[in-house]
Design a protein around this nucleic acid. Structure first.
Lengths: 217, 217
DNA sequence: CGCACTCTTGACCGCACTCAACGTTGGTGG
DNA sequence: CCACCAACGTTGAGTGCGGTCAAGAGTGCG
C-alpha cells in the first residue's frame, strides 16, 4: 500500500502525528467528495476504492482528468479552491486532513515535502502523456493506451486480467470519446484478439506487445 | 521578470550562489535544447524568448504540451530522462544548472523548494485545463481559449494587441488541430469581429468578454 | 529574380459523433 | 416468483466537423 510508503518516507516519528490529524470518511459509489470551485480547505489521501477527478463545462460536457487509486493524494492544488470535482467510482474511503495542519506538517518534514513534489511531477508527466493521447491519437490508440496504462498501474506485466471498475461513460470522458465509440473500439480490439472481455468490468490482455504497439508506447 | 521573484523567494543570500552555479546559453529559433529521452542531467530557467515543449510519436505526429516564457523552469522531471523535447520558438536564452548542484541547492533552501512545488502544481492545473480543451472543446472554442490564455499570461486585461511568436503549425500541434483548421478558425473569429489579425504574429482582441464566452471560461 | 517557406482558401473525404433500437442486468413492488 | 422499469452497454445507420489534398497568395532571403 503506497500510503504506508509515504509515511515511511515522511519518517516514522511522524506517523502518530499524521494519524492524529486525520479523520476517515466513507464515500458511496457516485457520491462526490468535493466540487470544482469549492473552497479547498481539506487535503485527502485515498485509502480504498477509486475516485475520478473531472472538469465540467456549462453545457454538461465533461473531461475526466484522472482516476485515483489507494495511496494517491488529492486536494493539493495551490490555490484557494479545487480545480476539479472528485467523485467515487466504487465505494471508497479517504483519509482527511485540515489543510493548514497538513501544511504545518509539511513544514516540519522536508522528506514529506519531497515526496509530494515527486508525486506532483509524476502526475504532471502523466497529464502531458494524456495531452498527447487527447490531441493526437485515434480512438483505437486511445483505448489501447488506456488499457496498457491501467495494466502498468496494476503491476500486470504481461498478459492477464484487469479490473475495469469505471463505466463506459467514465472511460469515454477520460479518453475524449463517446460511449458508443468506446464500446465499438473494445469490440474491435476483441475481434483483433488483442483483448478479451469476459465481463463489462474486466479486460483480459491477450497480446500485450501488440497492444503496446497500437497504444504508441 | 519572474526569475528575479524566484531568487527573492529563495532568499537573497542565495543569489550569488545561484548565479555562480548557472551558465548561460543562447538558442536560435528552431534549435532544440534537449530531446525527449535524453538523460536529464541539467535544469534550466528561461530568461529571454520562448520555448515549446513537445512529444513526438514514431510516425511524426506531434503534441506541444506547453510554451514557456521568461521566468519559467524546465527539466525538473523527477525521472532519469526528459519526458518531452524543448525547442526555441524565437531566439532564446536560458540559465543552465547541473542537476545535482541544483538539487543540493533545493536541499539548503526550503523556500526555493516551496516555490518549485507551487509552480509544478500550477502547471499541473494548467495541464488539466488543456486536457479539457483537447478532449471536449470544438476548434472554435480551442482557438478562443488559446488567445484568452495568452492574453492572461501577457497581463492583457481587456481588449488589446497580443504577440503570437509561434507558427500556425505550433498552434495546431498545441491545440490538437491541423494548420488549415487553425487558419480557418482565426479567419472565422475575425469575421465574427471578436479579433483582428493585423499581422501573422499579432492578434488584436476586439471583444474580450465574448471571446471568453466562446472559450468556455 | 527565383526559390523556399508559411499561411490561406477551396473541394472533398472519413473518423468519430448523433440518433435510434435493442439486449442485458439488477433492483423494486405486486 | 415474476412483471416492470431504469440504467448500462452494444450495435447499426446516417451525419458532420475537422482532416486531407491541392492550389495559390504573401513574404523573406540569397
Amino acid at each position: 500500500m503506497r500510503s504506508i510508503a509515504v509515511c515511511a518516507a515522511a519518517g516514522v516519528e511522524l506517523l502518530p502525528r499524521l494519524t492524529a490529524l486525520a479523520t476517515g470518511r466513507r464515500i458511496d459509489a457516485g457520491q462526490t467528495l468535493f466540487q470544482e470551485g469549492d473552497v479547498a480547505d481539506e487535503v485527502f489521501t485515498l485509502t480504498e476504492g477509486m475516485l475520478k477527478l473531472y472538469k465540467l463545462m456549462s453545457d454538461g460536457r465533461r473531461q475526466i482528468v484522472g482516476f485515483l487509486v489507494p495511496g494517491d493524494f488529492l486536494g493539493l492544488a495551490f490555490g484557494r479552491s479545487y480545480v476539479y470535482s472528485a467523485e467515487a467510482v466504487v465505494p471508497t474511503t479517504v483519509c482527511r486532513f485540515r489543510r493548514p495542519q497538513f501544511l504545518d506538517m509539511l513544514e516540519d518534514c522536508p522528506a514529506m515535502e519531497k515526496e509530494i513534489l515527486g508525486r506532483t511531477s509524476t502526475e504532471l508527466a502523466a497529464a502531458q502523456e494524456q495531452m498527447l493521447l487527447l490531441g493526437r491519437k485515434t480512438a483505437r490508440e486511445r483505448v489501447a493506451s488506456f488499457i496498457v496504462s491501467l495494466a502498468r498501474r496494476s503491476k500486470i506485466e504481461h498478459e492477464g486480467s484487469l479490473p475495469l471498475p469505471m463505466s463506459r461513460s467514465d472511460i469515454a470522458d477520460y479518453l475524449g470519446l463517446t460511449i458508443e465509440t468506446v464500446s465499438r473500439t473494445f469490440t474491435l480490439l476483441r475481434k483483433e484478439k488483442l483483448i478479451e472481455l469476459p465481463d463489462k468490468h474486466v479486460v483480459e490482455i491477450k497480446k500485450r506487445a501488440e497492444l503496446e504497439q497500437v497504444a504508441g508506447f
